[in-house]
Nucleic acid binder design. Structure first.
Lengths: 414, 414
DNA sequence: GGGGTTAGGAAAGGGGCTGAAGAAAGTCCC
DNA sequence: GGGACTTTCTTCAGCCCCTTTCCTAACCCC
């Protein structure tokens, strides 16, 4: 059974306040209290804590209606840096963010098909992290943490990559390997949850207690936000929606089953949809998912009937799958995320909305909206960095009032 | 955003302690502390509260290893009564429970196909409730509450039956109608969540933070237990799993879609599975779901190949659907509940386990067990009564220590 | 330079949980 | 029979959390 303590309330409120400030920076304590529903006193102490941590700064005043001006606080961009690493099948990407979650530096490492040994991947991660730190010219001590997204199933407590289908990893002690090379606090999880956390903090799911973040990339999955937090399940593998059966005895999936959602709406699935419709067409770039999806997006924009049809077909599959999620989970919002969704954009979402409207039950449907992720850039890196941010916020301990008032509190040592 | 307060912690702990006592009655405070992970002091105050409420009694002592004997507490069966009402398409059933959740009285009202007006249903509920109270010879004041399960979508705050597919009800203010005739505290929800709560308190999901209770009756649904509580979704309609698409363009469902899970594993779906396999067979009782499912169960027990095949086919569909739930939610346990599951029993579960093992991903599968509901009798009535129990426990307010020590606290007035 | 007004800090209060101390109620042994 | 020991259970102090209330700070206007 989950054990909840009053500290969890504090942590959740800390998250909530910081989230609000990042979204609307600068802002006043008054506004924060109104937005979060907390009392002014609580907001003030939380803001005080964050000021002590150097995560916020006071940035002047705002006129009030005649009385004392409101003090404004803003994210202290220079107060620390967060690094998000996105390990994918063919690349490792790292981004370094300031505390406003603006990208200060990027690095990408290409991985050749053969490079699948853990040490090789760890090497690339180390290089990428080193690169962004160097580029940004940040002192090491200011890096509050590194979040790492690794595909597959991850045990976030022990940091073991239990299973990564791309490379057939089994129980690789990734955290231990990374710790040998990276001195910052590390946080591991998978891209599904990274995207979910990114939407929850900075994207369309902000302020929603129940949301589904559908991930459309090469693989497909769903990050589940339930009760204001990411649902992880008992062994941290919740959200494996890509291998939901959509078509009994349908297309063969690499998972061994037939008819998985992924085989119809993942990038390779979309290519197959296209190939079935127009085998020798110009839109298809065999062996290049990105180019094909790009071509489809351009085709739809140009009114190419083949492209329109392929997107519509894909949306139908997707709509059927999403309807199931809507019926089952009754979320407030469904967010379409990841590169395929970003590339195909609104035309896809519009078709999906229609398809869901046809399939889903009326009541849950009425409570749900379906939107495109508003996050620019790589949501996985952002989400991974958010893991680091959450980590930094959870480890805040009670400070003596002497420390709170007087001497600067040193940043979390590496 | 959900707002959590320290009171929620208290309520959750109260639930947990009472749950434990009901499961293992009599028991000692020591054991409770060990089982719940709470400190002895907290357990003692919670037990004290429940004693004051007359929900528990002290029932003697147990030898300790040499020192002072442990005081034993047990559910005070006479401390109050709970009523659970199961409104279904063709009947209204009411059961009256003591606080140990033992059935003291039952009543059932048959409803003819035409009887679908809210007033008629309310009339049957009123009669049934009156009947169980009379049978049990309980004074009205001891009834702590009445839980009512009504099919479809319910707003449990306003008590409006937003949509009941059986009778095409739309926004029927059921709670208001019932309040006119029934003076006890009323709690409304739907059968899915009733079964889930029943399993969570008294069944196979006890002690699990993440569980799925699959409901196999005429209709099909899934009660989701997430984070130790029932997940309701934003408009209290989560769990509508029966209309998940299992077969694209499959059987026509009354919801208007094709290929819904319900059309394959609900009782009418099973009858169809049977009819397709063996059109004129002896097992089929047209127009009688119960008789057909009973016949199937007997057939399987007797080794009838047709029955075995039908159950296997049904289990395959069910297994595919459950695999999706396992992948998506990563629960600790999946419980098969409701009359179809109870009737077909272990043979069905065994086949389902096999089917799920074939479909689900290895990692979530490894963390999940699939079991039959151990609850005897009607889980919907039990769950509905549990709503009333939860209601009675949540409305506990702080008592002055004078009251705690001295004068008996009157039971919740009707 | 006073009133009026609004912001924000400090203190008190209430709810929760825990750990330690002490009272209560046994056993054991002389 | 009476101490010594053990174990249970209650009570109390302590800490965390949030909120309400009171009071000071800061600014506007006259």
């Amino acid at each position: 059974m989950v054990k909840r303590t009053s500290r969890d309330i504090r942590t959740a409120n800390r998250y909530e306040v910081l989230r609000q400030i990042i979204a609307e920076s600068p802002t006043s304590r008054q506004e924060l209290a109104a937005a979060t529903g907390l009392s002014l006193a609580t907001v003030a102490t939380l803001v005080g804590e964050l000021l002590d941590l150097r995560m916020l700064t006071e940035v002047g005043f705002e006129d009030s209606a005649g009385g004392r001006p409101r003090g404004l606080v803003a994210v202290n961009a220079a107060g620390g840096a967060l690094i998000g690493v996105d390990i994918a099948e063919t690349y490792v990407r790292a981004e370094l963010f300031d505390l406003g979650l603006n990208v200060l530096a990027r690095a990408a490492e290409h991985m050749r098909p053969g490079e699948s040994r853990p040490e090789q991947v760890v090497g690339h991660v180390t290089t990428a992290v080193g690169s962004v730190v160097a580029q940004a010219g940040i002192e090491g001590a200011r890096v509050l943490g590194v979040g790492v997204s690794v595909p597959g199933q991850v045990d976030r407590v022990t940091g073991v990559a239990e299973y990564a289908p791309n490379w057939d990893w089994h129980d690789v002690p990734l955290l231990d390997l990374l710790t040998e090379h990276i001195a910052y606090p590390l946080h591991l999880d998978n891209p599904l949850r990274a995207c979910a956390v990114a939407e929850l903090w900075f994207g369309a799911a902000r302020g929603h207690a129940n949301a589904v973040v559908v991930n459309l990339g090469t693989g497909v999955g769903a990050g589940l936000v339930i009760g204001g937090g990411v649902h992880r399940g008992v062994s941290n593998s919740a959200g494996e929606w890509g291998h939901t059966t959509l078509v009994l005895d349908g297309r063969l999936c690499h998972c061994g089953n037939h008819g998985c959602v992924e085989t119809y709406v993942g990038a390779p699935g979309i290519m197959l949809n296209l190939r079935e419709l127009d085998p020798g067409g110009a839109l298809l770039h065999p062996e290049d998912q990105t180019a094909t999806v790009d071509a489809l997006a351009r085709g739809v924009a140009a009114g190419d009937p083949v492209a329109v049809k392929v997107v519509r077909d894909t949306a139908r599959y997707l709509g059927a799958g999403i309807s199931d999620l809507v019926n089952l989970l009754n979320p407030e919002i469904v967010v379409l995320s990841s590169w395929v969704a970003a590339t195909l954009g609104e035309p896809l979402v519009a078709e999906v909305r229609e398809a869901v409207a046809r399939h889903a039950l009326k009541r849950p449907l009425a409570a749900t909206e379906i939107v495109l992720s508003p996050i620019p850039g790589d949501p996985v890196c952002l989400g991974a960095a958010t893991f680091a941010l959450e980590g930094a916020l959870s480890s805040v301990t009670q400070r003596s009032s002497a420390a709170r008032r007087g001497a600067p509190v040193p940043l979390k040592p590496v």
